[in-house]
Amino acid sequence: MIRALSFISLVILWQIGALLSEPRQLPGPIIVVQTIVREAQSGALLTHLMATTLRVCAAFLLAMSLGTAIGYMMGRVKTIDRLLDPWTVILLNVPALVVIVLSYIWFGLTETAAIGAVALNKLPNVIITIREGARSLSQEYEDLATVFKFSAINRLRHIIIPQLGPYIAATMRTGLSLVWKLVLIVELLGRSDGIGFQINLAFQLFDMRLLLAYALPFITLMLIIETFLVQPFERRVSRWRNNDA
């Protein structure tokens, strides 16, 4: 209820702002919605939205799976940790833009370079969080699995992943927002489709309507993913914590 009120007041503020300023600087919500409908009818909106969403998914999954595997190994094996720790720290501190530009220069303006660059930016973040989780895995449950001769799969499913769950959820949450923001940048710099590309176009034309008509649906989509996929996952992995007597 409060959320809805807050949202409505934002729209009202936007309308007031639009009335007070020039339409070129801030078009009102109605004009923007009309533009969205127009772009959607032409099919362009969906095409660009799909392109960006696929990139977000690919980069996100790549960073999460690779980061979880590396982070887990670093958390469990000291030698691997010592070996990879400096790389992680370096990667964590290299500006995203540097990674993106280098990736485009070295690997060309390709899809692989774009997705790889985004994933690489997210990777150290995942590694560090999962490493923390792997370090805190309980020896007691490990012993339990050994005594009761759990298979490798059961060990992973019932002992390791449930303990890493909250860490995975935490890094997913921060990960998704970081990844989609970066995807727009790689699109702006080196792709010929996607929301980032359209925003660049709108910027060059100084077309605020077009810019908002592409930004808003995309932000909405990301909010939907966050609310209906990421948050339920987070609740699921921490569900058992609420069952304490």
Binding site: E140, Y141, D143, L144, H158, I159, P162, W240, R241
Partner: peptide, 21 residues
């Protein structure tokens, strides 16, 4: 088979799952 000093059940699995596993 072993019974540890504390029950050491997997807190994230139901009792029936704990036994099934």
């Amino acid at each position: 088979g072993a019974v540890f000093q504390e029950p050491r059940l997997l807190p994230w699995r139901s009792i029936s799952d704990n036994l099934k596993i």
